[in-house]
């Protein structure tokens, strides 16, 4: 795609054309040529829309809750964008993206746009392109943008850095204390949802979560805790009103905005670094001969890295 085409595509994305929006997301997800230009045309440091993350162990009900949240936001006239990330197989690189299944009742609603993404080897609960994809949905007028993470159960802190509000979903019966500690609830959640309140063990879970929150330093803001059942609907009204309070409360904070732009620059710089290193490696004969030299005992990955860095530094100086 030429520069003019990319500008056209950006205009179509902003106008809300679904096919163009879907194509833009693919371009960026595949890191295709032109994706940087496209993202440049769509970038908006002010980010007037809200991003809501939803994380928690597999099977906790994240997608089912997402379906409920979409319905709630739609009843308030909001246009909702959803990015649902599922794990890619480390063996085949393929993935079954099943989150959409629970949200399909909104498939024909033009005010809802749902996109499934494979994690494609990225760790941290998202895929490498999720942040850029959420910017595209925001630019297309979706507000809020809801991001469902891969449910691996721990270390999914990445979404907390990306989203304005992060919901952590926990459920009874997964070994409450361990679950609560593994999830790192003091670091992640603005809102902790204790889902499947229709199931036994919900009181113990609530006690474990509250005891854990007591331990957090009093200086840091404490997460709100709501129990509900995405299945029966019990407790959802309280969830919605608590979330609305948090969303409206997370107004434009200049410090947070600065921090976010700083992260964007670092993320882009990192991918530039990776691409340049790959090109330098290629110029030096490619990865396979390098592997041979390491296997022959001529050198090590660390020496190859040092040489790459020297080459790069020469170019800088």
């Amino acid at each position: 795609m030429g520069p003019g085409d990319l500008e056209n595509l950006a205009t179509l994305v902003r106008s809300g054309d679904p096919r163009s929006l879907a194509r833009a997301l693919s371009l960026v997800e595949n890191g295709a040529t032109g994706s940087a230009e496209l993202l440049h045309h769509l970038y908006d440091a002010a980010r007037a829309w809200k991003t809501v993350g939803i994380t928690g162990p597999p099977g906790a009900g994240k997608s089912t809750l997402a379906d409920r949240l979409i319905a709630f936001w739609r009843s308030n006239g909001r246009r909702v964008g959803v990015l649902a990330v599922d794990p890619s197989s480390p063996f085949s690189g393929g993935a079954i993206l099943g989150d959409r299944l629970r949200m399909q009742s909104h498939a024909c609603d033009p005010g809802v746009f749902i996109r499934s993404m494979g994690s494609r080897g990225h760790v941290g609960g998202l895929s490498a392109a999720t942040s850029a994809a959420s910017d595209i949905l925001g630019a297309a007028g979706y507000d809020p943008v809801l991001i469902e993470t891969v449910g691996v159960g721990q270390g999914e802190v990445e979404v907390a850095g990306l989203a304005d509000i992060t919901i952590l979903v926990l459920v009874p019966g997964l070994g409450d204390d361990v679950q609560v500690m593994k999830a790192g609830i003091m670091e992640i959640g603005d809102l902790i949802v204790l889902n499947k309140a229709d199931r036994p063990g919900i009181d113990q879970l609530e006690a474990a979560v509250k005891a854990n929150l007591e331990l957090s330093p009093s200086s840091s803001p404490r997460a709100a805790v709501v129990r509900c059942s995405a299945e029966t609907g019990e407790g959802l009204d309280l969830l919605f009103s608590t979330l609305e309070g948090l969303i409206t409360g997370s107004g434009p904070d200049p410090a947070a905005r600065r921090e976010r732009v700083r992260e964007d620059i670092l993320r882009v710089a990192e991918s530039v670094g990776i691409r340049l290193a790959a090109r330098l490696l290629e110029r030096g004969g490619g990865i396979d001969p390098a592997v041979d030299r390491v296997l022959n005992g001529e050198t090590s990955p660390w020496m190859i890295g040092r040489d790459l860095e020297r080459l790069a530094s020469k170019a800088v100086e």
Partner: peptide, 8 residues
């Protein structure tokens, strides 16, 4: 999926 594709 096992053939490396993303299946929705």
């Amino acid at each position: 999926r096992d053939a490396g594709m993303e299946v929705i």
